[in-house]
Amino acid sequence: MTALIALIRRELRIALRVGGGALIGVLFFLAVVVLMPFAIGPDLQLLQRLGPAVLWLGALLASLLTLDRLFMADHDDGSLDLIAMSRTPLELACAAKALAHWLAAGVPLVLATPVLGLLLNLDAAASAAIAATLLVGTPALTFTGMIGAALAVTLHRGGLLMAVLVLPLSIPILIFGVAAASAAITGPVAFGTPFQILCGLSLASLVIGPFAAAASLRQGLD
């Protein structure tokens, strides 16, 4: 347990110091949302209607782009081999790394959502609902994406290949995230149903992600 806490603290410290680049994800999120009105026009009504979809797509892309960092630096300087050889099960180590990554890269996205909601003409309740869906949805994105990151790092192929593999897997998360967010604003269905399914997806990915990532690291590192 102390080993895991130490691992999480180490990851957080690396992510937040100069050169860690955890906050670049938020900057990217902001850039995507600012770009949207230029593509679809400054019509506030339209932006309000598309708001949940825009915010969710921005968060999805931002968390996908920061996933590269999850294993790459540790693989380059050899500490990934040390983690794999340590007595802590690799599954738990992967889960700890993903948790730290989510704290450093996912939580800022959630915190930025109300501010970005203002740009999209969303009222306080709608922004809060979207922030809530992102809060329970972004762990699922991180833990699903971790599988792709682990595959990419063992194969020395990052970037596009990882995106191509991970994007189809994140479709359910996107569907239920956007559905819950729009249900809170206008939707024909209740907020609770898609929100609970989204929580379920998050919990399932908490289980599947570390095992698949650890398996692919173990197969790839030897």
Partner: peptide, 14 residues
């Protein structure tokens, strides 16, 4: 063989 194991994991996740 490296590709095979990576693909096997992705197939099962899929």
């Amino acid at each position: 063989s490296r590709a095979a194991r990576a693909c096997a994991i992705f197939t099962l996740v899929g």
